[in-house]
């Protein structure tokens, strides 16, 4: 499968502040790829670099094989871009903005746009600035779908949306993704919606990549176990086996990619009684919090 996006050895600083270092990933054609991480971990920075709105300190970003900060127009036409906060030209009306964009994209299909607009309680001459946040998000989505891009980049699509609009948004994206070789790159910090949506995920934390794998694999291999701690002074540390942990009074939770026997062996070495160790089932959001931590 062809790589739509390739990020190679990306390092970026804001002044002296390191955002990420030696960051690598790729997005394969036809996949729905999620870049997940807490606020401030560099999701928008990555997107900005990817769209050519930021020059990385070092490293390279390729989109359809082109250097991302010098994308030729025909490549830009293949990319649909949703800016954080569903920003659009708010001085235009529903009709005007459709008319505007249609001139730029040869594959423009206005039907999906107007179909989506018909669901909103707005007239076609209403200006975007006079709409609610949810309504504006639908306009932004409709425009991207009408563009019929090969790659969709959605920066924090969930920002400011209530559950209904988030669901609506994803429903349309799923429809769109069904078409052949459509790739979606999505960032979010609301994880629960994405559980049955993503193909691949990349979970990042401040300055490091925590997980990079198909989402199914992540859910299958990443486990949480609980056990009793032998004494109040008991301490754990992060290592190859223990990816994260929490200790609350006499209860401890550990998060691991390791198989149960391996973990038990390790815990044994810390004189933990294996009989108290039990696996806790997790949703994607639980797993996300498990790996990124609550703070």
């Amino acid at each position: 499968m062809e790589n739509v996006v390739e990020v190679k050895n990306l390092t970026h600083y804001y002044g002296n502040k390191l955002v990420f270092e030696d960051f690598n990933f790729e997005i394969k054609s036809g996949r729905i790829f999620g870049l997940l991480g807490k606020n401030g971990t560099g999701k928008t920075t990555t997107i900005n670099i990817l769209n050519g709105f930021l020059k990385p300190t070092s490293g390279q970003c390729l989109m359809f094989g082109e250097n991302s900060y010098k994308l030729p127009p025909q490549t830009k036409a293949r990319v649909g871009f949703l800016i954080e906060g569903h920003i659009q030209y708010s001085f235009m009306s529903i009709k005007q903005i459709e008319k505007f964009y249609s001139a730029f994209y040869p594959k423009w299909k206005k039907e999906p746009y107007y179909e989506l607009m018909a669901k909103l309680e707005v007239t076609q001459d209403q200006k975007l600035s006079k709409m609610s946040c949810g309504q504006r998000s639908q306009v932004a989505l409709g425009l991207i779908l009408a563009q019929d891009p090969d790659l969709l980049i959605l920066d924090d699509y969930s920002m400011g949306l209530d559950a209904g609009y988030r669901r609506l948004f994803l429903d349309y994206l799923i429809e769109y993704a069904k078409a052949e070789s459509k790739t979606i790159f999505i960032t979010s910090h609301i994880i629960q919606d994405l559980e049955n949506f993503l193909d691949d995920c990349l979970i990042i934390d401040y300055r490091s990549v925590l997980v990079a794998m198909p989402i199914k694999e992540f859910q299958k291999t990443f486990k949480q176990y609980k056990f009793h701690v032998p004494n109040p002074e008991f301490r754990l540390s992060k290592n190859n086996i223990i990816k994260n942990y929490e200790i609350l009074k006499d209860k401890a939770s550990v998060y691991t990619f390791s198989e149960r026997p391996e973990l038990e062996a390790y815990l044994n070495s810390l004189s933990i009684n294996n009989s108290t160790v039990e696996e806790v089932p997790m949703t994607l959001e639980d797993a996300f919090i498990g790996i990124t931590g609550k703070y």
């Binding site: 769209n51 709105f53 030729p72 830009k76 800016i83 920003i87 659009q88 030209y89």
Partner: peptide
């Protein structure tokens, strides 16, 4: 208006040099 909320990104993302 282009600079407000970085709308210029939308403009520069248009398939034109």
């Amino acid at each position: 208006p282009e600079m407000n909320l970085s709308r210029l990104k939308l403009t520069l993302h248009l398939p034109v040099e």
